[in-house]
Amino acid sequence: MNAEELADLEARERYILDQQGILRKGIEEGLAQGREEGREEGLGLGMREKAVEIAR
């Protein structure tokens, strides 16, 4: 393998590692957003249930 091929290989490896990092970050952000939305929905349902319980 000559120097040019080695440099190309290293550049491709950096690109792949960068893409993996981007994907990992996107997944983490998506999960965090989903958890937050779930919490908000759960609180809303809990408040409605409590209101119905009090009304009874």
Results as ranks from 00 to 15, higher is better:
G21W: 03
E28A: 00
L31A: 10
K25G: 05
R12M: 10
L9H: 09
L31M: 14
A51L: 14
G44W: 00
A11H: 01
G34F: 03
E49C: 13
L31P: 01
V52H: 15
R12K: 12
G46L: 03
A55V: 12
G30I: 00
R12H: 04
A32F: 02
E53R: 13
V52R: 15
D18G: 03
G46I: 02
G26K: 04
Y15I: 14
L45M: 13
E49A: 13
L43D: 13
I27D: 07
E29Y: 04
R35I: 03
E36C: 05
R12T: 03
K50C: 15
D18N: 05
Q20W: 05
E28G: 05
G44M: 07
D18R: 04
Q20Y: 06
V52K: 15
M47P: 06
R35W: 00
L9F: 12
R12F: 06
N2C: 04
R14V: 00
A55G: 13
A11Y: 07
K25D: 05
E29A: 00
G26N: 04
K50T: 14
Q19I: 04
G38S: 08
Y15W: 15
M1N: 12
E5H: 08
G44S: 13
L9D: 05
E37P: 02
E36H: 03
M1E: 11
G42A: 09
A3M: 13
E37C: 01
E4R: 08
L43V: 12
G46F: 02
R35M: 01
I27A: 10
D8G: 12
K50S: 15
E37D: 13
L45P: 01
E28Q: 04
A7K: 04
R48D: 11
N2D: 07
E36P: 00
G34M: 05
R14S: 07
L17R: 10
E53Q: 15
D18W: 02
L23N: 05
D18V: 02
E40L: 11
G34P: 06
K25L: 01
E10C: 09
R14F: 06
L6F: 08
R35P: 01
G42F: 02
I54R: 09
Q33A: 12
G38W: 05
L9I: 15
G21T: 06
R48N: 14
R14H: 10
E36I: 00
E4V: 05
G34A: 12
A51M: 13
I27T: 10
R12Q: 11
I27R: 06
I16K: 07
L31T: 09
G26V: 00
L45D: 11
E28K: 01
I54C: 08
M47F: 12
A11Q: 00
I54W: 01
R56H: 14
G42L: 01
E53F: 11
D8Y: 09
L43I: 12
A51Q: 12
I54A: 13
E41R: 10
E5F: 00
L6K: 06
G38T: 01
R48V: 11
E4Y: 08
V52W: 14
